[in-house]
Design a protein around this nucleic acid. Sequence first.
DNA 1: CCCATAGTTCGGTTACGATCGAAGTATGAA
DNA 2: TTCATACTTCGATCGTAACCGAACTATGGG
Lengths: 235, 235
Amino acid sequence: MKEGPDIARIGALIGDPARANMLTALMSGKALTVTELSAEAGVTLQTASAHLAKLEAGGFVAPRKQGRHKYYALAGDAVVGTLEALMGLAADKGHLRTRTGPRDPALREARVCYNHLAGDMGVRLYRSLLARGHLRTADDGLTASEDGIAFAASFGIDIAQLTAARAPLCRECLDWSERRSHLAGALGRAFLAEIYAKGWAARVPDSRIVRFTPSGRAAFQNAFPVPSETPTSPL
Amino acid sequence: MKEGPDIARIGALIGDPARANMLTALMSGKALTVTELSAEAGVTLQTASAHLAKLEAGGFVAPRKQGRHKYYALAGDAVVGTLEALMGLAADKGHLRTRTGPRDPALREARVCYNHLAGDMGVRLYRSLLARGHLRTADDGLTASEDGIAFAASFGIDIAQLTAARAPLCRECLDWSERRSHLAGALGRAFLAEIYAKGWAARVPDSRIVRFTPSGRAAFQNAFPVPSETPTSPL
DNA sequence: CCCATAGTTCGGTTACGATCGAAGTATGAA
DNA sequence: TTCATACTTCGATCGTAACCGAACTATGGG
């Protein structure tokens, strides 16, 4: 009677509030113990254990034993990507629980999305480039202007190498905490690499957080100024 | 106690088998009536009506009244994209209900994914280009080789215009019916446009199906030969 | 060896939501 | 108006799964 991939099972797995809370907590990129996850979900240890067994059977999380602790982490990029998509959709519809972004403020400010910068700082970068005409949006995606190429070069990016590779140069990526687009693609990756190289920021180990130094933050805001908050359409 | 986007509500919406069946049926791109969807889901009309009300409230589907019929369709590209992601994940884990692809064989053979070719024919195109060295996979994505550029030009694609736009040239996209990658990005779009232009295939109105003519199918298979089935790693 | 902490398994309760029958509304046809 | 089709609303039933208490296993420390 049924056909196609069984999205109902996947949906049901995500559909329980306790499990959804656990998955949301794991989106930080950190591996968490059963006890920690039970607290995140607001259930007892036994219940959490049962939920995690189901998530593991469904291929959502993978355990790693360490001493008498059992650490769970999300099981791969496909899972992370799908959850990001779901979060984007949920945010889009206004289905928020309480806040508009993840709990951890540092995660909300700047984090790694695959290999480019996301979060508030990522959105700033994107908006700044767009406002100054370095990027242009078109029907079929995002393109860099001549100005933008020159700017990237002056920032320290070897633009010739990027374009020679013929890989996607610019792409946009919807940010679930900010509900705005940020810059992905080869150029987005190159900007983040250069930000690391300049010592403005560093990645926090075992998490997706990118922590800016005070001077790095100032330099960033100077390099990527944003005009006064323009009322953008909420995508 | 909770924070972040409410993915639980979204998940629960998809998590019910009846609703999942309806959404799967709507992935064809066609708008369907309540009665049709109740049959797809295997429930009575009343139950289907209740489910559709919930899906509508959740922003998954949008109704359109026409006479005494009420047609439902998926509510936008974000929903389609999220469902594709979920289906890919489900297929990935082997969570199949009965078959490995959508019910409609035509849809399984060739369909539009955003603006490029997906389904069996899309996978063939991709594998053929890859096998002949026209495309190369790298850590940071997909690139076209010099050979590939020349081939695309000989196929009738104005490659200079595509590269000038600096938009993503090649991207890969996971196919939920085939569980394989196919070609997306500007080049993928250009190939599909050229296939239309050559009269090999045409899009079926009100659906995502791309229907090949018999001679078009032959020409396609001649232009994009695939080597004997190589046991590729899943994904 | 004993105790403490981390996690699992088992059993019984409870609550939520899917389901359908039956009755109600809307649109169209005769 | 009357009948038929398409859909919605209401009310009651029923199953499944989340939940926790309690007992059990495993690992580490003294």
